[in-house]
């Protein structure tokens, strides 16, 4: 029964859904990494975005305006990280840990302040981005079931893969981001300010991650709960690293992790203990990271001659 479920188009549909937040964050990580900064604050940014998404969409009574406002917040957190790392010269990992900590505390504080709720935003009348069915495609057997009837943000995340690819490889700014990440001094020697480029990259990274965070409470679920990013930001870090920090590579690895999440979602309904099934996405990431790193190490050793 479970095997059937995994091979079904519904499962693939679920996979895409579960991939969406990871994919946004992985793209966010890819841009930051290309510019030479590890953005481990993705986790905190997503958590903030999940909360602000709920608040803003309720305030504006428009999911789209809510998304837009959340993206602005995401950009600001990216800017803050950039300021700490580039201006104050804080270690990028410790700065991110600080942001993640602040996110943990502040989301609880803000939720309480705004709604009086603790833990879950049940009294906030927030909106979600709708699902749509794709006119012609939905009629194609199998593929229709997989692709159609998804949240619009899921489609946007897929489009973002292409957009980020074009951005990084076909635009002047993308070229400069790659140049700064690969050889900061070279970029600096021609008058590109590495700091400026990294500010931009981290702001964009924050915006993308916030879209993933928004999806968590305004698409995947319909409410904000504390700690709901649940390590997806960290999984996304692994996804982009294993995807060579390219948008396409990040997408493929995110899909793998999304599938693990989807399997976990399905199996929880079965007879297996749900706690063990919940381990699956993290276990997949851990093992996947190990295999990827091992093969990369071997490849490098081969290049070294023996």
């Amino acid at each position: 029964m479970i095997v059937d479920a995994i091979l079904s188009p519904e499962f693939l549909n679920n996979t895409l859904r579960a991939t969406t937040p990871i994919l946004f964050a992985a793209l966010a990580s890819a841009i930051a990494s290309k510019s030479g900064v590890v953005n481990m604050a993705l986790e905190g940014i997503m958590l903030f975005a999940a909360l602000f998404g709920v608040i803003f969409s309720a305030a504006f009574q428009s999911a789209w305006l809510g998304l837009l406002a959340t993206m602005v917040v995401g950009g600001f957190i990216g800017l803050f990280l950039a300021f700490a790392v580039l201006k104050l010269k804080t270690d990028e990992i410790l700065a991110a840990i600080a942001i993640n900590l602040i996110a943990n505390g502040a989301t609880i504080l803000i939720l309480l302040f705004v709604s009086g709720d603790r833990g879950i935003s049940s009294s906030i009348n927030s909106l979600t981005i709708p699902m749509v069915s794709l006119p012609v495609i939905e009629n194609i057997p199998f593929i229709g079931t997989v692709l159609s009837n998804q949240n619009i943000l899921t489609y946007i995340s897929l489009i973002m893969v292409v957009v980020v690819h074009i951005f990084l490889y076909k635009t002047p700014l993308g070229l400069q981001i790659r140049a700064v990440g690969e050889n900061k001094d070279a970029a600096e020697s021609v008058g590109i300010s590495p700091d400026r480029i990294r500010y931009i990259s981290l702001i964009l990274s924050g915006v993308l991650a916030s879209m993933g965070g928004f999806f968590l409470s305004g698409g995947y679920m319909t409410r904000f709960t504390t700690g709901m990013s649940a390590g997806r930001g960290f999984i996304a870090l692994a996804a982009s690293a294993m995807g060579g920090n390219t948008p396409i590579g990040s997408f493929l690895v995110s899909l793998l992790f999304g599938a693990a999440q989807a399997i976990s979602n399905i199996l929880q309904l079965g007879t297996l203990p749900h706690e063990l099934v919940q381990m699956l996405p993290y276990l997949t990431t851990l093992i996947g990271l190990g295999i990827y790193s091992y093969s990369r190490m071997k490849k490098r050793q081969r290049l070294m001659g023996r």
Binding site: G231, F234, L237, E275, L276, Y282, Y294, M297
Partner: peptide, 30 residues
């Protein structure tokens, strides 16, 4: 894992925390 495969410790150690959490929850409730 880092010694054997050169995996990034940051990410793998974070994954360990979630694995331990769910494992503990399993042991606790079962």
């Amino acid at each position: 894992l880092k010694i054997k495969t050169e995996s990034d410790v940051l990410v793998s150690s974070l994954m360990m925390n979630y694995l331990i959490l769910y494992f503990s929850n399993y042991v606790l409730s079962n």
